[in-house]
C-alpha cells in the first residue's frame, strides 16, 4: 500500500533515494508479495479447484452405481435440483435451523453476559462452567444429548420431569436446535461480555446522573453500544451453523421424513447414499450461489464491524 512510503519516508533512509516514492518498483512489489504467496496459492488450489470440478460434474448424468455411463446433459441436473421438493424442504430446514439457533443463542448469550458483567463470588468459576459446552466435541455433544438426555426410557429429561416423551421423534427440530443452542450460547456470551466490559463507565454514570433508570440505560445506551458485538456474534455463528452436519447426522438422521434434513445432510445423502454424483454437484453449485448472495451482504457487515484500519 502506498501509505507505507508516505508515512515511513522520513525515517527510512534508503527509501528516500527512490525517485517515485509512491510507486514501489517491480522488485520491491515482489518482495512484498513473497510472504503472501504460499498461503494464497494453497488456499486457491485447495478451495477453488474443487469448485471448478463441481461445476464440471454438475453437467454430467453420472450415477456411480451405473458404471460406464457419464453423459453430458447440460443444465438438466439443475432443472432436477430446482424442482426437487426434497431440496426445497432442505433449504427451508436450513433457514429454520440456522436462524433458530443463532437467535436463541444470541439472546441467551446476552442475558448470561449481563449476569457475568457484575462482580460476585465465584464469577471466574461460573464463567468457566458456562464456556464448557462450547469446548465439548460437537459429535460427543450430539451423542450425549441423543442417548443420555433425550432418550425416552433412561434420558435425563424424562428422569427429572417424569413421563415417557420421545423428545427426538416428537420435537425433532427443537431437539437439534436445543443441542446447538447449548453449544453456541457460550460463544455468543464471550463475545458480548467482551463488549460489555469495554463500555465506558462515564457514559453509564452520566446516564444515571441524568435520572435514567436501569432499563432505560440498558435499552438506550448499552444495547446500541453492543450492536456491533451482537452482529459479529450472529454473523460468525451463522457461518458455522449453516453448515451443521454432526447434530443432524447423529440426533435425527434428517428425519422423521425430511423434517430436519438440512442442505449439507441432503447433499451428503445424494452423494453417498444415492450416488447421484451429477445431481449432488448441481445441488452444491446452487448452494454456493446462494451462499455468495448471502455472503456479499455478510462481507459488507464484516468490513464495517472490523473497522478496517488502513494498514501502515
Amino acid at each position: 500500500m502506498t501509505q507505507t512510503i508516505a508515512t515511513g519516508a522520513g525515517t527510512t533512509p534508503h527509501r528516500n533515494r527512490t525517485t517515485h516514492p509512491a510507486r514501489p518498483g517491480a522488485a520491491q512489489r515482489w518482495t512484498r508479495r513473497a510472504p503472501l504467496l504460499p498461503a494464497l496459492i494453497f488456499a486457491i488450489v485447495v478451495t477453488q479447484i474443487p469448485f471448478l470440478v463441481t461445476l464440471y460434474l454438475s453437467t454430467l448424468d453420472w450415477n456411480a452405481l451405473r458404471p460406464g455411463r457419464r453423459v453430458f446433459v447440460g443444465l438438466a441436473n439443475y432443472g432436477q435440483v430446482l424442482t426437487d421438493a426434497r431440496l426445497r424442504a432442505a433449504l427451508l430446514n436450513t433457514v429454520v435451523l440456522t436462524a433458530g439457533s443463532v437467535i436463541a443463542s444470541v439472546l441467551l448469550g446476552l442475558g448470561l453476559a449481563i449476569l457475568l458483567d457484575r462482580k460476585f463470588p465465584g464469577r471466574g468459576v461460573v464463567r468457566t462452567l458456562l464456556i464448557t459446552p462450547f469446548l465439548v466435541m460437537p459429535m460427543a455433544a450430539a451423542l450425549l444429548w441423543k442417548h443420555a438426555i433425550y432418550n425416552p426410557a433412561y434420558g435425563l429429561i424424562n428422569g427429572i420431569v417424569g413421563g415417557s416423551t420421545d423428545w427426538v421423534s416428537q420435537y425433532p427440530m427443537l431437539s437439534v436446535v436445543t443441542t446447538l443452542v447449548w453449544q453456541w450460547t457460550p460463544f455468543m456470551m464471550l463475545i458480548i461480555l467482551a463488549g460489555l466490559q469495554g463500555q465506558s463507565l462515564e457514559t453509564l454514570e452520566a446516564a444515571r446522573v441524568d435520572g435514567a433508570g436501569p432499563w432505560q440505560t440498558f435499552t438506550r445506551i448499552t444495547l446500541p453500544y453492543l450492536r456491533p458485538y451482537l452482529e459479529l456474534g450472529a454473523l460468525l455463528g451463522s457461518i458455522y451453523l449453516v453448515q451443521t452436519f454432526d447434530a443432524v447426522f447423529t440426533i435425527t438422521q434428517g428425519g422423521p421424513g425430511t423434517a430436519t434434513t438440512n442442505l449439507p445432510y441432503e447433499i451428503y445423502l445424494t452423494t453417498f447414499r444415492k450416488f447421484e454424483y451429477g445431481e449432488a454437484a448441481a445441488a452444491g453449485v446452487v448452494v454456493v450461489i446462494g451462499t455468495i448472495v448471502v455472503a456479499t451482504f455478510a462481507l459488507r457487515v464484516i468490513s464495517s464491524l472490523f473497522r478496517m484500519e488502513d494498514a501502515r
Binding site: A43, T47, P50, T54, Y268, V287, V288, A298
Partner: peptide
C-alpha cells in the same frame, strides 16, 4: 474469509473423487 463461507458440502464430492 470468503473461502470460509463457502459450504464444505459443495466441495465434498470433487475432493472425494480427487
Amino acid at each position: 474469509i470468503s473461502t470460509k463461507m463457502l459450504p464444505a458440502v459443495a466441495a465434498l464430492l470433487p475432493i472425494y473423487l480427487l
